[in-house]
Design a binder for these strands. Structure first.
Length: 426
RNA sequence: GGAGAGGUGGCAGAGUGGUCGAAUGCGGCGGACUUGAAAUCCGUUGAGCCCCUCGGGGCUCCGGGGGUUCGAAUCCCUCCCUCUCCGCCA
């Protein structure tokens, strides 16, 4: 959510900034609502003041044993007037709130302007894609040959975009998650956290999935609360700070969570239908940081670095791109995507997305810290990043470490997690 | 799933219709005393929002929502959460 004061003070400037993100703000409609709100709020509050004063007067008069009937007569219509004003005010406030909740975040000045992924800016590359002396196979072929990836079984149980992993591939998947968790907790200082995989609408509103992107989520039926499966652990992790006021010396605060993620993938029919690149369910190790506002951009660099370390240790080539204004997510002020090299596709594919949302989410969920300089609670900045998507990382290991005979070498850092296994073979 | 108890300020805990945003204690902050600390004493200490002639003025919040009333932390309805006992269960 954007700062109401910023919007009030210069709606035109905000509208222009939003335009860069492909969002058109109807400034006239907004200003009309805002003017009406102002008028109604003043009116309502002065009626409330009148009510409070007369109620007190009646109380005193009654205690003094005076006749209160004249006082009661004087406020006979006040209740109805007040109720009408309050109803109208809360209606207009709801309309404003609805509008605010649909506005995307403003991009940081360092974010390149652009329409879509073609306008993203490559920041750096790490590692050299391996030269194969045979035609590299993709993870589907490799995994099925290993007997460890069973897309037919996934489809039998749950339909398309589900997979069953078994044996050494399942173990490799587990090893990846373990390795990531250990690295982030032991070396990067994140607090290991397991979270609910079902969250309520307040949490989803807080991180920005709702109200706009309900169709991307799985909702739970047959339950009297409106719970949704998490699309990312970012939702429960970030919402840990909701309604909290943290002390300055607690910051920055970092959480890491290994969790499944559930996405309906509405609107991506026909995209990445082969393999486990785009599944309805996948595992992810997620990092979330809560920082002081003046530290959040340094924190974004650090957090992105933490994700990169995983790929470096796995010796998987990747590149980092800055998303342009048009390609960023709703809540982000700045996002780095990390793309890993997939020989099966001869392409870099997203394996991590690291974002600074500044105060956008914090404002929605009232996540604050006490600034020692002012003594007042102020909004935190929140950041999140995958480090990494475990499923896609498995894909990358299979494809990058494949040998001509279908054997997969196990990256050195994972071997301890695989009981010393150096390679797996069909 | 059954029975009961309860949700109040950072914490503990009073408050069952009127000047209560709310006693008291602890904690925090400032000060006095002290060489320093402890103890003691004094003061202070919630959050959000609106208006403003920048002096200030006002509104809202006692788990959430709704209702009764001139007036609700207090009464009624409803939902959520916590605790205790029983049942069930990983």
């Amino acid at each position: 959510m954007l700062d109401a004061k910023t919007l009030r003070n210069d709606p035109q400037a905000v509208a222009e900034a939003l335009e860069a993100r492909g969002y058109t703000l109807d400034v006239d409609a907004y200003e009309g609502l805002e003017a009406r709100r102002r008028e109604l709020q003043s009116q309502t509050e002065s009626l409330q003041q009148k009510r409070n004063e007369s109620a007190k007067a009646i109380g005193k008069a009654k205690q003094a044993g005076e006749d209160i009937q004249p006082l009661l007569d004087a406020v006979a219509t006040l209740g109805d007037e007040l109720k009408a004003a309050e109803t109208e005010l809360s209606d207009i406030q709801q309309q404003l709130q609805d509008l605010y909740l649909e506005l995307p975040n403003l991009a940081h000045p360092s974010v390149p302007a652009g329409m879509d992924e073609n306008d993203n800016l490559e920041v750096r590359r790490w590692g050299e894609p391996r030269a194969f002396d045979f035609k590299p196979r993709d993870h589907v072929d490799l995994g099925e040959a290993l007997g460890g990836l069973d897309f037919a079984a996934g489809a039998k149980l749950s339909g398309s975009r589900f997979v069953v992993m078994q044996d050494q591939v399942a173990r490799l998947h587990r090893a990846l998650a373990q390795f990531m968790l250990d690295t982030h907790t032991r070396e990067h200082g994140y607090r290991e956290t397991y979270v609910p995989y079902l969250v309520d609408e307040t949490a989803l509103l807080g991180t920005g999935q709702l109200p706009k992107f309900a169709e991307d989520l799985f909702a739970i039926a047959n339950f009297d609360r409106n719970l949704h499966l998490i699309p990312t652990a970012e939702v429960p992790l970030t919402n840990l700070a909701a309604d909290a006021i943290l002390e300055a010396d607690q910051l920055p605060l970092g959480f890491v969570s290994h969790s499944p993620c559930f996405r309906s993938e509405a609107g991506s029919y026909g995209r990445d239908t082969r393999g486990m690149i785009r599944q309805h369910q996948f595992d992810k190790v997620e990092l979330v940081q809560l920082t002081r506002p003046d530290d959040s951009y340094d924190a974004l660099e650090r957090l992105t670095g933490h994700a990169e370390v995983i790929l470096q240790r796995l010796e998987l080539p990747y590149r980092v791109v800055t998303l342009c204004t048009g390609d960023m997510g709703f809540a982000a002020a700045k996002t780095y995507d990390i793309e890993v090299w997939l020989p099966g596709q001869s392409a870099y594919r997203e394996i991590s997305s690291c974002s600074n949302t500044e105060a956008f989410q914090a404002r929605r969920m009232q996540a604050r810290w006490r600034n020692p300089e002012t003594g007042k609670p102020e909004l935190l900045h929140t950041l999140n990043g995958s480090a990494l998507a475990v499923g896609r990382c498995l894909v990358a290991v299979l494809e990058n470490y494949q040998q001509a005979d279908g054997r997969i070498d196990i990256p050195a850092v994972l071997q301890p997690y695989m009981g010393g296994t150096e390679w797996i073979a069909p």
